[in-house]
Write a protein that binds this DNA or RNA. Structure first.
Lengths: 333, 333
DNA sequence: ATGAAAGCGCTAACAG
DNA sequence: CTGTTAGCGCTTTCAT
């Protein structure tokens, strides 16, 4: 019977001697099937290892019990969120589909295109990670994690980026640093804006002016942080400490420092943001501001599930940040 | 024009004054469309933000340029592979879809069911992570990572688990440990079998018998490792060192040790396997045997792409393991 | 309780 | 060059 390709509903129907309509009913647990038929069909289903094609069934039913998590790329940040979402999905009736077109196609507007590609059919709802173009008038319920600046109209979960920025800066200040560089994040993201605002606020509170030549844009990614890190460090009046807006650019900063013959933390203190697991792998282990990334992913998933169940949900969840001291910062002197 | 739901091909066709067939041709870059029509349709597509539904188009065309990575759960191991696959996909024409039904539905045979659910339509090929039921006669090309014991017939990528097991054990031996516990992995996985074989081989080479009461099954997961860890440690003749078959169960072992008032590494040395980023986050940072997880993911993806292009591929890639010394082991005495 | 038939959004012949 | 016509595998009325 191993003819061609995967087993489809028609194969099950034939083998069980019923119509596909009947098989569909038992697969979907509809009423109106005799117990004997039901048993027989289920037997054939398990014998053949049949499972309905997600593509086909979703096309027709528009209810799939699958939720999507749409990311530009699977990197340490988004995969932490994914772990959290995966933890949370266990207690629901849903399955999880994570989608990325790969870095290259992650141009402006990717979130809208992904949504169009998967929404309406394959997935019942979506979590979008760091969307820039937010398009509230959606077809399916959407929750945003760490979105673009400004009110999006989308339910959002993020963490207290401003407080985190203050925290990081105050830590450096408390260690005696005064000449502090800022490697900013993606300027199109609210999180980056707030972390920088926190930095400036803490500097101002300390009565310190911000040297704008010490403010660069690291773009949140190792590749985009490389040159800015050189600009910051390869100069006689380099800062004694750098606050990088996320761990990936902080880690790259540490690497560039080493390339330039600078020892971290002896010659340069570096603090990051996010507390992705990779930050502990860094040499030296990175001092950073943690966001509860897994929890953010789990909360976003729960929010989405509530949305799908048409329950009332908060439109914005903000989770706390905290200082994690490791070995990349030390007192000046 | 914002009537109902997502914009579909018919909407584009209407707006551009052509048939859906023509729109399909321009979307898929087929020949036989006048330049002026092409321009007009493309304009409408970008105005409307149209993107073809993956569900619908795949149902018909059986070629999607999407590859799947099928996992039981998104945890540190599978997400490292995912990062590697994501790195590698950037240089291809493919997009990446990662799928998990959540822990609960990850029963025996999940890999076959996922494949049935997504294969044939949504995805052109798949990477399956730690499959138990290997079913070579597939509809779509499949690459296995760290599969079930025995020859599967599937192209496989894994690492040198035996050598890694030897390495971990010899490290403990070199530190003077003689009474060494083994927390084994999932017995249905070749990797776990080989790591244990490496352990036994190293013990034998050292002329040491294996105390079978010190061999437990941790099942690779924190939840399943908890009780075995207690069994191993909560007794007067407990081992002075434990080799855990993966980092997650090693980390849990460290936690249980602490619960029991044991200090790691003073009272107990623990070594893991995998070198997931979380192992560095452990307190104390975990000494472990690294597998090049991201590279494994990238290689598996490349293998799959080659398979899809009908290029000749190696049927088995084995990558090296290496000892990573951190702080969870110390000399006995 | 069961099956026939229509159709989800799209692609692939084939006509025109 | 363009449109018409069939389905892809499944769900869903609606008859029987």
């Amino acid at each position: 019977m191993e003819h061609t390709g995967r087993v489809k509903m028609a194969d099950v129907a034939r083998q069980a001697g019923v119509s596909v309509a009947t098989v569909s009913k038992v697969v979907n647990g509809r009423y109106g099937v005799a117990q004997s038929t039901l048993d027989r069909v289920q037997q054939v289903i398990s014998d053949l290892g049949y499972e309905a094609s997600l593509g086909a069934s979703s096309l027709r039913s528009h209810r799939t019990h699958v939720v999507g998590i749409l990311v530009a790329e699977f990197e340490p940040f988004s995969t932490e969120l994914l772990k959290g979402a995966s933890d949370a999905i266990g207690s629901t009736e849903y399955e999880l589909l994570a989608y990325s077109a790969g870095g290259r196609r992650a141009d402006v507007g990717w979130e809208r295109r992904y949504l169009s590609r998967l929404g309406g059919t394959l997935i019942d709802g979506a979590i979008i990670v760091t969307p820039t173009v937010v398009d509230a008038r959606g077809v399916i319920p959407v929750v945003a994690i760490d979105p673009h600046t400004g009110p999006s109209g989308l339910p959002t979960v993020d963490s207290d980026n401003f407080a985190g920025g203050v925290m990081a800066t105050e830590h450096l200040l408390a260690l005696g640093h005064r000449r502090i560089g800022l490697m900013g994040g993606r300027p199109d993201l609210e999180s980056a804006r707030l972390r920088e605002a926190g930095f400036r606020s803490a500097m101002a509170s300390a009565g310190l002016p911000v040297d704008e030549t010490l403010v660069v844009n690291g773009g949140y990614r190792p590749e985009t942080a490389t040159q800015p890190a050189r600009d910051l460090l390869d100069r006689p009046d380099r800062p004694t400490a750098v606050f990088a807006a996320n761990d990936l650019s902080a880690i790259r900063t540490v690497e560039i420092a080493r390339e330039l013959g600078l020892h971290v933390p002896r010659d340069l203190s570096v603090i990051g943001f996010d507390n992705v697991p990779e930050s502990a792998l860094c040499d030296p282990p990175l001092t950073t501001v943690s966001q509860p990334l897994r929890d953010i992913g789990a909360r976003a998933l729960q929010l989405l599930i509530d949305l799908l169940a048409e329950r009332d949900v908060p439109t914005h969840l903000r989770l706390p940040t905290a200082l994690v001291e490791r070995a990349s910062c030390r007192p000046l002197g």
